[in-house]
Structure formats: structure tokens, C-alpha cells
């Protein structure tokens, strides 16, 4: 565990908490893509199956359980409790265009052709693109509430910090995982445009609004 990895995990945790609090406090999930949240739930469930097979550390197990639980709670709030506030019309990204390529890619490019390994690889690929329905929703409505922007910034920073963690681990431990690195780079690149808008607008107190 190095400082970049810890900062990445805390950023990830912060993102999930911000999202849950936003929905809970405003009693609304307006501006949030339910499709991205479904994809994240699939990511956690397929990656953290090793909770049942491999013990790594108490920290590792607790974080995995928290991510799965928070993801389930988010889906419950969006699709059950505050269903009426869910922005169906704008959340129109076709997730099969992400799911199917990720399944195929995981079957072709993986470290080991075993069920657990292919599910892990699938979750890594899917996570890298899972934010696309959310970014699509923001681009369709042309704006995002500040709290949604903070959520996206924390969530995007998490994988960017993991990239630093992987550079550190490569230098310090000669450890690397090309699948994770490749997907992590793709994931971070997808946020770049948003990062730019966040820094130039949201941090200056303006609303995130896309040019018409």
C-alpha cells in the first residue's frame, strides 16, 4: 500500500459517499445516470467474487463489501425509492454497446482462461467505460449540478491516482498488470474533458455548463 493507492481508494470511497448523500439529501436522482450505476454494480459484483475465495486483508475485504453495499443502495434509491425523479428520457445510452465488447475482449485478452479470471478481466474493461452513460447524460442535458460534478471529479481522480500507484509499484516492486494499466489509461482519458471543465468552471464557483 502506497500513498497513491490509498489516495485513490479514498477518492473512490468519497465519490460513492457524495453520490449517496446527494440522492438522499435532495430526495432526487436527477442528473444521475442509472445505466452507469447498473454498470458499476456489475463491475463490483464480477470483480469482488474473490471475497469468497481469497483473503487479502481486512482493509481489502471491508472496502469491497462497502463498494458492493453502496452500489446496491444507490440502485435501490434510484430505481425504487426515488424512482419518480429518475431522468429516463436523457439516460438513453445503449449499455449493450459497452457490455458486449467488454465480454468479447475479456474472452480474448486475459491472463488466464478461467471463470474467475475472465470475470475479473471483464470487470476491469467494463469499469473503464462504465462512466460513458453518465457523461452522455451530462452532454444531453448540457449541464451538471455542482454536487454531481464533485462526484465525477472524485470518481475520475481515483483511477488517475491508481495510474500513479502502478508507476510507483513498477519502480518499487517491479510489479505490473498490463490489462489493468491499459484499462486504467482508457478510463482516465475518458474523464479528461470533464476534468478540464471542472477545473476551469466548477472550482471557480460556476455551474458546469456545456457550450450550446
Amino acid at each position: 500500500m502506497n500513498i497513491f493507492r490509498l489516495a485513490g481508494d479514498l477518492s473512490h470511497l468519497l465519490a460513492i459517499i457524495i453520490l449517496l448523500l446527494k440522492i438522499w439529501k435532495t430526495r432526487s436522482c436527477a442528473g444521475i445516470s442509472g445505466k452507469s450505476q447498473v454498470l458499476f454494480a456489475i463491475v463490483y459484483l464480477t470483480r469482488y467474487l474473490d471475497l469468497f475465495t481469497t483473503y487479502i486483508s481486512l482493509y481489502n475485504s471491508i472496502m469491497k463489501i462497502v463498494f458492493i453495499a453502496a452500489s446496491g443502495a444507490t440502485l435501490y434509491l434510484m430505481y425504487v425509492k426515488f424512482k419518480a425523479t429518475y431522468d429516463h428520457n436523457h439516460d438513453s445510452f445503449r449499455i449493450e454497446f459497452l457490455l458486449i465488447p467488454c465480454v468479447i475482449l475479456a474472452l480474448i485478452i486475459n491472463h488466464d482462461f478461467t471463470v474467475m479470471e475472465i470475470l475479473w478481466t471483464f470487470s476491469i474493461y467494463l469499469e473503464s467505460v462504465a462512466i460513458l452513460p453518465q457523461l452522455f447524460l451530462v452532454s444531453k442535458t448540457g449541464e451538471a449540478e455542482s454536487i454531481t460534478s464533485h462526484y465525477l471529479f472524485a470518481l475520475g481522480s481515483y483511477r488517475a491516482l491508481y495510474l500513479l500507484n502502478w508507476i510507483y509499484r513498477y519502480m518499487a516492486e517491479s510489479h505490473y498488470d498490463l490489462i489493468a494499466i491499459f484499462a486504467g489509461v482508457v478510463q482516465t482519458i475518458l474523464y479528461c474533458d470533464f476534468f478540464y471543465l471542472y477545473i476551469t468552471k466548477v472550482l471557480k464557483g460556476k455551474k458546469l455548463q456545456l457550450p450550446a
Partner: peptide, 10 residues
């Protein structure tokens, strides 16, 4: 180097 270092990550 060691491949597959990411299983202890989240």
C-alpha cells in the same frame, strides 16, 4: 518483473 499485480487492489 511480475505480471498480475493488481489482485490485491480494488
Amino acid at each position: 518483473g511480475n505480471e498480475k499485480a493488481s489482485k490485491d487492489e480494488l
